[in-house]
């Protein structure tokens, strides 16, 4: 029997088409929104970055980036800050997620709400709150001196320290969340099996638990790192003008120099670098799975 002539074939095919149409129309508004608010402006900026002041095609913005050291510095400090923030988030977040994952589920859920608490207030509010806490006459310095922990006010803010403290605080939940989820999904029988086969708790952690939680750790680290690359408010407020990350540089170019081309080219380079990192990381993770699956 031919496909066309099959019993009810026509009707069934029409049903399939209708289903697909409904799905498509449901996603339609979102697709439209993304196109309008993302693709179009980004494409436009991309275009701008290749125009000179007169409106002709040129690579002058990219050339300037190579020549002027201040641009290179902005990129370097951006990657440095992102790297340090990610590293400290791992150091703080991994043990926290581990502790949470060992708690009974109900207690852990309550703790998780506490971890998410910062999301309830805006980034700007939290950043200014840190300013209040960290400044020379702030809560921390006042009490630190009162308790005799240190003698003169520490330079906690308007510098790299303040920026890092603010960013780590903001980014920590993004690290804890995926790591915790991964750890929760690790069957406890794996640890029991490891112990049964002769692994002390420490060894069982290193040989079994850590490798199994690695996907969550990589996901969290990537998310934190990439979000850090685009930070603007925190370095602007807590860096005291001394910390110029790429986003701050972009803002200066636009607000001070009205140089849309320069700002756009910075955005494009950051975008491409982020893409490369994501790609490399995804390769690395797959490689890692391959390695541990094949040998170790």
């Amino acid at each position: 029997m031919s496909h066309e002539a099959g019993l009810n074939a026509k009707g069934l095919r029409r049903d399939a088409l209708a289903e697909r149409l409904i799905l498509f129309s449901l996603s339609g508004p979102a697709v439209l929104l993304v196109t309008m608010t993302m693709l179009v402006p980004v494409g436009w900026l991309f275009w701008l970055s290749f125009l000179d002041d007169a409106g002709g095609f040129s690579l002058e913005h990219y050339q300037r980036m190579l020549v002027q050291p201040s641009y290179g510095r902005a990129f370097r400090i951006t990657f440095e800050i992102s790297f340090i923030t990610t590293a400290i988030c791992i150091l703080l977040g991994y043990p926290l997620a581990y502790a949470l994952s060992q708690l009974p589920r109900r207690v852990a859920n309550i703790c998780m709400i506490a971890v998410m608490l910062p999301f309830w207030t805006s980034l700007l509010v939290r950043t200014y709150a840190w300013l209040v806490l960290l400044q020379r006459q702030g809560l921390i310095n006042t009490w630190g001196i009162k308790l005799g922990l240190w003698d003169s006010p520490l330079a906690l803010v308007h510098n790299l320290n303040g920026t890092l403290i603010g960013m780590i605080h903001i980014m920590l939940p993004f690290m804890v969340l995926p790591v915790y989820a991964t750890m929760r999904s690790i069957d406890r029988d794996y640890l029991k099996a490891a112990a049964n086969l002769g692994a002390s708790p420490t060894l069982a952690f290193w040989l079994v638990f850590l490798p199994l939680s690695l996907p969550g750790l990589v996901a969290g680290a990537l998310m934190v790192f990439i979000l850090c690359l685009g930070f603007y408010v925190t370095p602007a407020v807590l860096g005291g003008g001394k910390i110029t990350m790429v986003a701050n540089r972009i803002a200066t170019d636009i607000e001070l120099f009205f140089n849309w081309g320069a700002a756009s080219s910075l955005g494009v380079v950051l975008f491409i670098l982020t893409g490369i990192i994501l790609y490399a990381a995804s390769r690395l993770v797959r490689l890692d799975r391959f390695l541990s699956g094949g040998g170790a």
Binding site: D189, K192, A194, A195, L197, V208, G293, G295, A296
Partner: peptide, 30 residues
Amino acid sequence: LAPHKRDVGMVFQNYALFPHMDVAANIAFP
């Protein structure tokens, strides 16, 4: 005595084979 010092073999109901290791690595583990 702690489990890892008891030196008994055990087959778990869900097998609990380590998914991040291949077959040889699983058996070589102990």
